[in-house]
Design a protein around this nucleic acid. Structure first.
Lengths: 133, 133
DNA sequence: GCGTGATTACTCGGATACAAGATGTCCGAGTTTGAGCGG
DNA sequence: CCGCTCAAACTCGGACATCTTGTATCCGAGTAATCACGC
């Protein structure tokens, strides 16, 4: 039970994109250099974010990735869900009871964490956060 | 990022043990049959719980496992930490900044979940829970 | 009846096998921009 | 000056390769209770 590196890459990339000038596409090469990770692997991660509708890609020269929605709206939870999936962290119950009390506790615990991550926006940790004052 | 099956087994076993008569040792065979899992694998999981000081084992005939502490005291978090480890779910930061804002957010989120799991005791989901009224 | 040894029913730990998922690479295909060139 | 072509700079997607981790099994060793047997 650990967050994957992919999630780490995705979060850093998203914060990076949030800090960029609006509507400006950033190439995957540039992002990969910034964080010293493999461009090809990073592009796979970004593809997931595109499919989740968080960012969009532009093909061709001067292409790259940019935010699809307002930068203030994007939460940590969205990014994490896009990479890790939205399924529950705790799967299956051993007793055939469909109202497993253990499962309910784990769901609730997970909900506590997700609630926090849903309220926390990317811009809260970006250098643009001062603009909110 | 998922809780392992081992955690699932451990939690079910612990709730099962909490429901047993005090100071009575239960064989791993019996527990494994109850949940239809492999006895040998289950014994490895229980070894971790023993090392964590949550339960204790008795060798020989009529041996088995029993709680080491008061049943009311044992929290979900203890069991999970014994199996999954106590390390943070989110590791490493890409920018060499040691005060990585993203990491701080993730730590806090994790803390939200752990707080809930720490307060939640095994007995809260056991059939003995009515005794608390 | 009583000690002693054998048997039985357990746990413990290491070694190993297997499967799945995370991580990372390679390459061909499609797409857009922009430069170069000819009319 | 205009339009065409071509090259360059990108992303996209699938197919792999590799590594780690979770899951599971097997087996020998140790340990404690109980049973059997002989005195």
């Amino acid at each position: 039970m650990k967050f994957s590196k992919a999630t780490n890459y995705a979060l850093h990339t998203m914060v990076y994109l949030v800090q960029q000038e609006a509507n400006k596409s950033i190439g995957v090469q540039q992002i990969a250099e910034t964080f010293s990770v493999s461009p090809t692997y990073l592009s796979k991660i970004l593809t997931k974010l595109v499919k989740a509708g968080i960012i969009e890609s532009a093909s061709g020269a001067n292409g790259g990735y940019r935010l699809r929605r307002k930068r203030e709206e994007i939460s940590f939870l969205e990014v994490i869900h896009a990479i890790e999936g939205v399924n529950s962290l705790f799967t299956g119950c051993l007793n055939n009871n469909d109202q497993c009390a253990i499962q309910r506790v784990m769901f609730e615990a997970e909900g506590q964490m997700e609630h926090y991550l849903k309220e926390k926006k990317l811009i809260d940790v970006s250098v643009h956060s001062e603009m909110k004052i």
